[in-house]
Design a protein around this nucleic acid. Sequence first.
DNA 1: ATGGTTGCTTCACCCGAGCGAAACAATCGA
DNA 2: TCGATTGTTTCGCTCGGGTGAAGCAACCAT
Lengths: 164, 164
Amino acid sequence: MDVVLVRWPEESSHLEELRASGTPRLLLVGPDASPPASHDPLEDWIRLPADDRDVRARVATLEARAGDAVTLPTLDNDGLLRFRDAWVALSPVERELAGALVERYGAVVGRNVMVHRAWPDGAPTRNALDVHILRLRRRISSLGLEVRTVRSRGYLLQSANGNT
Amino acid sequence: MDVVLVRWPEESSHLEELRASGTPRLLLVGPDASPPASHDPLEDWIRLPADDRDVRARVATLEARAGDAVTLPTLDNDGLLRFRDAWVALSPVERELAGALVERYGAVVGRNVMVHRAWPDGAPTRNALDVHILRLRRRISSLGLEVRTVRSRGYLLQSANGNT
DNA sequence: ATGGTTGCTTCACCCGAGCGAAACAATCGA
DNA sequence: TCGATTGTTTCGCTCGGGTGAAGCAACCAT
């Protein structure tokens, strides 16, 4: 989601609806104005005049927070895994594995559950799942997604930078 | 909880443990340094030289956020210990120990209670609990949690930087 | 105080199981 | 024919859990 720049306090009327809709926003505080008192993580402010890089850094931070809060990966009907405006094509087996992980995004999916999903009539080898998880990991790394192992319990899909 | 001021990038070594313990912090960015890229809501930065009121405003915001974030640790069904949007996987024994501690978060849990919980049919060695407590301590330190000893009474789970 | 005792922490080691990763072979489809 | 997909094997690392032992530190009883 894009960060909206708002002059403070000149455009403060506009601010209410941005707050209500959860839009990330950066307030440009005039040289003599006092900064706003909101502690919403999706709101930030900077004192004018400001270095352009500083503005961009704060915008980037707000964008990242908004992305953390909202984005869920989805697996569409064509077998494409989408996440944050990017996507990758998955092979059939990977599709099933990713499907199980996406349905329980951020939670652990048992190894046996995933084996059953990818090979309903029984797993080919005990190691097969490991290998496909490895291949899935490499594919989705470009999306900023990662599969984390929870030893003796299963696997967990999450955003690569941080948690959920 | 109090906001810690950190010079950036001079004191960046100290920063890691502040992040881990969930301590709110304001980075004082030198005139020529580039701002940090964290999107933790409990971290903020300001460019030096800065107006004193601006510093106080940011400190106040961080304090307010820290006050909002009185989260309790939870042990979910997958054996993951979650705290403040981070998590770690626990081994089976650690899971039982952490479960006992989480249920009485901030209060003392007797050693015998924990032994009975982890090994209902009797402890393997008298030392076993100590070793597992040590391992649990190391694991949860990354979450900003700590296990404190109350001599001859038991153990107590709390947030690493002081409160509750 | 002194020395001993108790309670707790920490380290080092072992074993077995779980898992990761590479390498290779076989198959399938455009 | 060529690349993509999948199955299989093998090697080795990491982790979990038990054990022994050394080291502190607080407490107790002379």
